[in-house]
Amino acid sequence: MSLQYLKLILLITITTNAVAAQIGKHCESEYQCTDEQICVSNLCVCKFNHIAKGIHCFREANFGEVCWFNEQCTDHRLICANTSVGIQRCICDMYHQYDYNVSECVLKANITDLLQERYDIHSQIVEGARSTFHGILITGLVVTGIGFSCMIIAIIYCFRMHISDTKLNRQVTILTNSVGKKPQASVKRSSEDTKKMNDAAIGPIFSDDLVIG
């Protein structure tokens, strides 16, 4: 009875300590790894015939089997795509068709269809590149036009400022010259008036001396 009790306690302890580990994480037993994983060399890895995607493992899918992404399909000629019933399955890509005799995707026999599909893809690429080039060209022309307009406006503004500065300098020069000439003229006039007054005062003195003599 005690032995069964110890086994029960041990099982509860292992279950409690068992934490689901992700791919590549350390593990002690397979119970610690998530679904579709096994513990190998103390690391969680995907089971055989499974492929890793993120932290989960998915079973590889053959032709016609349900899938979630392209890498899940077993053949490089298979892709994971929606079918007519709305379920994603592994089917042959556009360049191959499934041959039930050999149970694999084989190259399409109609080369014309392949060439037409390649031509359509090439035309789409060329048209997209042409549209992109036209958009870049138009953008470049608009930017160039705006830059040229800004340059013309700047030149006109600088020219007008130069003319305004020239006019202002002329007015300042004329005003300076006119202010400088007025004091000289007044000084010259005042000296002439003083001389006339002295002559007028000295004149009678000399005339009186002449009369007395």
Rank of each mutant, 00 (worst) to 15 (best):
T16L: 08
T16G: 01
N17A: 09
N17H: 12
A18I: 12
A18T: 15
V19H: 06
V19Q: 05
V19A: 05
A20R: 09
A20S: 13
A20W: 06
A21M: 15
Q22D: 15
I23V: 15
G24I: 03
K25Y: 08
H26L: 08
H26A: 07
H26R: 09
C27I: 03
E28H: 02
E30C: 04
Y31F: 13
Y31M: 08
Y31S: 07
Q32M: 13
C33S: 09
C33N: 01
T34Q: 15
T34C: 03
T34I: 09
D35C: 03
E36G: 02
E36A: 14
E36Y: 15
I38M: 15
V40I: 12
V40T: 10
S41H: 14
N42V: 01
N42Y: 13
L43S: 12
C44S: 08
C44K: 00
C46G: 11
C46D: 02
K47A: 07
F48L: 10
F48T: 12
F48A: 11
N49R: 13
H50D: 10
H50E: 08
H50N: 11
I51W: 00
K53L: 08
K53E: 10
K53W: 10
G54Y: 00
I55G: 02
I55H: 04
H56C: 02
H56N: 11
C57I: 03
C57G: 06
F58V: 01
F58M: 00
F58T: 01
F58G: 01
R59S: 06
E60Y: 09
E60S: 11
E60N: 13
N62D: 12
N62K: 12
F63M: 03
F63L: 03
G64H: 10
G64N: 13
G64L: 07
G64T: 00
G64R: 10
G64V: 00
E65I: 00
V66L: 13
V66F: 12
V66M: 11
V66Q: 14
C67T: 06
C67V: 05
W68G: 04
W68I: 02
W68Y: 13
F69H: 03
F69P: 00
N70V: 05
N70M: 04
N70K: 12
Q72W: 02
T74A: 09
T74R: 14
T74V: 14
T74L: 07
D75Q: 06
